[in-house]
C-alpha cells in the first residue's frame, strides 16, 4: 500500500515536471494569427490566395480537406468505417435465449419531442452536407448529426423500432458505400487521365462544367460519401454499445 502511494507521488512529480516544461515551451510559440509564423509562411498563403480561383469553393477549409488533401480525408473516412466494423466484430454476439425482450421506449413527452426534432435535425444535417463548401460544415459534421438523429430515435422509441427503419445490414452496406463513393470518384479521375482524386478532369463527364466547377461538384460528391459512412458508423457503434451487441433493446 505504501509502495503504491510512493509510486503515486512519483508519478505526480513526473506529470508536474512535464507540465512545467510544456508551459515553458509556450513562450516560443508564435502569437495567435501571426502572419510570419512558420505555419503560415509556406503553403497556406497559396491556399488563401488561390483556393477560390482553383476550385470555386469559398470555404477554404472544405477546399483543403476535400480537394487539396483529399487523400488524407479519404483515409479518415476509412478510419471511421474500420472503427464501426471493429466495434461490430468485438461486441456482436448471438441473441440471448430466454430473456424477455423489454420495451424500453421513453415517455410520451420524449416521444413527441423526438417526432418533432428528428426531421428538423435531418434537414439541418442535409443542409450542412450540401452547403459544406460554402459555409462551415461538411461531410463529417453533417454525418454525425444524421447519426445523432438515428440515435435519438433509438433512445426514444427503443432500438428495435429504429432498426426497423434502417436495418443492421443496411447500416453496414451504407457504411461501405460511403467509402466506395469517395474512392470511386478518385478512381474515376484516373480513368479520365488525371491523378487519383484530381477532380478537374471530371469536367469531361459532368455536363456544363469547366475544370474549376468540376472540382466544386466533386467535393460535394465526396462529402456525401463521408456523410454516409460517418452516419452509419456512428449509429452502428451506438447500437452495439447500448445493447451489448444483441441489438434487442436500447438503453
Amino acid at each position: 500500500m505504501s509502495l503504491l502511494k510512493e509510486f503515486k507521488v512519483l508519478a505526480f512529480l513526473v506529470v508536474l515536471v512535464t507540465g512545467a516544461v510544456l508551459v515553458y515551451a509556450i513562450g516560443d510559440f508564435p502569437d495567435w494569427g501571426d502572419p510570419i509564423s512558420p505555419a503560415s509562411e509556406h503553403v497556406s498563403s497559396y491556399y488563401i490566395e488561390n483556393a477560390i480561383h482553383d476550385t470555386a469553393v469559398p470555404n477554404i477549409v472544405t477546399a483543403l480537406l476535400a480537394d487539396y488533401r483529399g487523400f488524407d480525408t479519404m483515409f479518415e473516412t476509412v478510419v471511421v468505417f474500420v472503427a464501426g466494423i471493429a466495434v461490430l466484430f468485438m461486441l456482436r454476439r448471438p441473441k440471448r435465449e430466454s430473456e424477455v425482450s423489454m420495451d424500453v421506449s421513453g415517455s410520451p413527452i420524449v416521444k413527441t419531442a423526438t417526432r418533432i426534432m428528428v426531421p428538423m435535425m435531418q434537414l439541418f444535417a442535409l443542409y450542412i452536407v450540401a452547403h459544406g463548401h460554402h459555409s462551415p460544415g461538411g461531410g463529417f459534421q453533417g454525418g454525425v448529426i444524421l447519426g445523432a438523429s438515428l440515435i435519438l430515435m433509438a433512445i426514444a422509441f427503443g432500438l428495435p423500432s429504429a432498426l426497423k427503419k434502417i436495418s443492421n445490414k443496411a447500416t453496414v452496406m451504407l457504411s461501405a458505400l460511403g467509402v466506395l463513393i469517395f474512392s470511386g470518384i478518385g478512381i474515376l479521375c484516373m480513368f479520365l487521365g488525371g491523378n487519383f482524386l484530381d477532380y478537374s478532369v471530371l469536367s469531361a463527364i459532368l455536363p456544363g462544367t469547366d475544370r474549376v466547377m468540376a472540382r466544386s461538384h466533386a467535393m460535394l460528391g465526396v462529402e456525401i460519401g463521408v456523410a454516409l459512412t460517418v452516419m452509419t458508423a456512428m449509429f452502428s457503434i451506438y447500437a452495439d454499445l447500448a445493447s451489448e451487441g444483441q441489438l434487442d433493446q436500447g438503453l
Binding site: V61, F140, Q141, V144, I145, I151, L241, E244
Partner: peptide
C-alpha cells in the same frame, strides 16, 4: 469548422457513446 466538429463529435456523439457504455 473545428468548432463545429468539436460540438457535434466531442460534445454530442462521444457523450452519448460514453453514456451508453456507462449504463452497462
Amino acid at each position: 469548422d473545428v468548432a463545429f466538429t468539436e460540438a457535434t463529435v466531442g460534445a454530442g456523439i462521444s457523450t452519448v457513446l460514453i453514456l451508453a457504455t456507462v449504463l452497462h
